[in-house]
Amino acid sequence: MATGLMTSLASSVRSAPGDGTAGRRPPRERARRRHSRTHRAGRLLLRRILVLIPTTIMVSLGIFAVAAASPFDPLTAHLGDNYQSATPAQRAATAAAYDVDQHWLSAWWHWWGALLHGDLGWSSTQGQAVGEVIAQRLPFTLGMSAAALISAALIAVVGGAVIGMRRGGLLDRACTALAAMLAATPPFVVSLVLVSIFAVALGWFPTSGARRPGDDYSLAGLLTHAVLPYLALTVSMVPWLLLTMRAAVVEATGSDPVRAARGRGVDGWALLRGHVVPVSVLPTLALLGTRLPELIAGAAIVETVFGWPGLAEALVDSAVALDFSLLAALAVGSAVLVLLGSALSDAAAVWIDPRIGLTA
């Protein structure tokens, strides 16, 4: 995707900010161009939303089907240590009480019926309404993921621009090798390394949770406990974004418009800001939407390793116990988030440069 976007944008550098051509357009023409870009981006976003509806329905159907085919017996979560000694009658009564004896297709149909009436259902694993579970845990997951994504994007854009402008140098080779190594390292390995060094060996940060046992949540406690999971999630997001930004900068610096700018005496920061970055940052922006599944999966792994009180633990418990209401809400919500993120990133790319031929 990055290469295709670069190809479509290479010729636009001549009219990028800093070369003076944009300022010579009449105000009426600039307004018309802005309106056209907004119209195309909005039309693309509307098409994606229309596609999102049937996709969400199919995803939810698949979730119920896969959960029903799971080898886990949901009664083990409800009966606990009494599972082996429970009689068939007791197991049947427990299954009926928790609604785990109905066919998965019937459960899917009833779940959608309740959802359309604003009822997310009752979580048998958490012992409370699904809406309450999400409301309590979502801020932890959303705050951690958003902070890590923003930090990773900033590090990737700045770092990729710097090493891309110094292609082949020692810094470029070192950063590229490190990024390739981290890209091949699973998030749980990064998490365990951070725990081993900074929590166990040095004792600088706590190993898990978001507060000390017995304490209430506080800003200082949250920030202290969030350092290691935040670092682990950020590190897992940086490599691909950094390598994409570097590749885009390298391609932009070798393009004819940039060589022409250098011939006019433009160099250094002015060249990077006015000619290279406006073209190079777009592939990284487009990649953010496609990396959302990785962010969600990475957040689930990191939260599990560090015992962060987000949605990951609830998702794992609901999957093991076949808690259809909570499992469907979390899985479908994640799918919708990924689809919306991809649609927004593509719409932003079309708005930034209408030469991009995305229509659906």
Rank of each mutant, 00 (worst) to 15 (best):
251 E>A: 15
255 S>F: 11
275 H>Y: 13
195 V>N: 03
286 A>N: 09
207 T>W: 04
217 Y>E: 12
299 A>N: 09
192 L>A: 03
204 W>H: 05
304 T>D: 03
221 G>D: 07
217 Y>M: 15
238 V>M: 07
288 L>V: 15
231 L>M: 10
260 A>C: 12
290 T>M: 10
251 E>R: 14
290 T>P: 01
303 E>P: 05
235 V>H: 02
239 P>W: 05
213 P>W: 02
296 I>W: 03
251 E>Q: 15
224 T>H: 14
192 L>Y: 09
303 E>G: 04
219 L>M: 11
253 T>G: 06
304 T>F: 02
287 L>Y: 03
201 A>V: 06
280 S>P: 13
306 F>Q: 00
233 L>Y: 02
279 V>D: 13
203 G>Y: 06
291 R>K: 09
252 A>D: 07
280 S>K: 11
187 P>V: 02
203 G>S: 04
195 V>I: 15
216 D>A: 14
208 S>M: 04
196 S>A: 11
238 V>I: 15
228 L>K: 03
268 G>E: 11
259 R>Y: 11
236 S>L: 00
256 D>I: 09
300 A>Q: 12
304 T>V: 04
275 H>G: 08
208 S>W: 10
305 V>A: 00
276 V>K: 06
297 A>E: 10
215 D>G: 01
184 A>P: 04
190 V>A: 06
229 P>Q: 07
304 T>H: 06
281 V>K: 06
298 G>N: 03
281 V>T: 09
270 A>L: 14
190 V>T: 14
208 S>A: 14
278 P>H: 05
298 G>Y: 02
255 S>D: 12
268 G>R: 11
212 R>I: 08
257 P>M: 06
269 W>M: 15
267 D>E: 14
191 S>Y: 03
243 L>S: 05
203 G>M: 03
223 L>V: 05
302 V>P: 02
188 F>K: 05
229 P>A: 05
274 G>E: 14
189 V>I: 15
203 G>C: 08
